[in-house]
């Protein structure tokens, strides 16, 4: 009798893969809005997996930043650009074939590596609670943290410059 959390893992993993597939290659709709919605669902399923890995803070950040901020930005841009007439263009057979070939090759390499890897000696499992994470962030990783704030500032200035009417 498998434990409840094990079943939850399979449920979330299956949902993440299913929604990911529907985001990438939805057989019913080519619309970017559909893709964006399924990407949101994939991200939520991944947040569930994070919770199963006891990374509670990251699960919250995943939902807030990705499903909240980033996807809203995507939807804004999709609606701004009004991409409706491009729905009908078909995917070409050649690109699908080449893409599938590359992907199967890389999937083979990755899965082979995972299977061939030595199983880990099952030691202590880390708890990803907020307190130790914050401590680590503000001691050992203080400099990268500050650099990150600078990066956000640079991105903000860059976006404002890029979205001006005239790019000189």
């Amino acid at each position: 009798m498998p434990a409840f959390t094990d079943l939850l893992f399979y449920a979330f993993a299956g949902l993440a893969l299913l929604f990911g597939f529907l985001c990438v290659a939805n057989p019913f709709s080519r619309s970017p809005v559909t893709s964006a919605m399924f990407l949101v669902l994939t991200i939520i399923a991944l947040a569930g997996l994070f919770i199963l890995l006891h990374a509670f803070f990251l699960a919250a950040v995943q939902i807030l930043v990705y499903a909240g901020a980033v996807m809203v930005l995507f939807l804004f841009v999709i609606m701004l650009l009004d991409l409706k007439e491009e729905d009908r263009r078909k995917m070409r057979g050649f690109t699908i074939g080449a893409g599938a070939l590359a992907v199967v090759a890389i999937a083979g390499i990755l899965i082979r590596a995972v299977i061939a890897a030595q199983p880990l000696a099952q030691g202590i499992l880390v708890e990803g609670e907020t307190k130790p994470l914050g401590k680590l962030l503000f001691t050992q990783y203080l400099l990268p943290f500050e650099v990150m704030s600078l990066l956000l500032l640079v991105a903000m200035v860059g976006v404002i410059l890029l979205s001006k009417k005239e790019i000189k």
């Binding site: 990911g20 985001c23 290659a25 690109t95 893409g99 992907v103 999937a107």
Partner: peptide, 10 residues
């Protein structure tokens, strides 16, 4: 990851 890669390529 492979799903995402396929999307980028196709």
């Amino acid at each position: 990851f492979c799903l995402g890669l396929f999307g980028v390529l196709a």
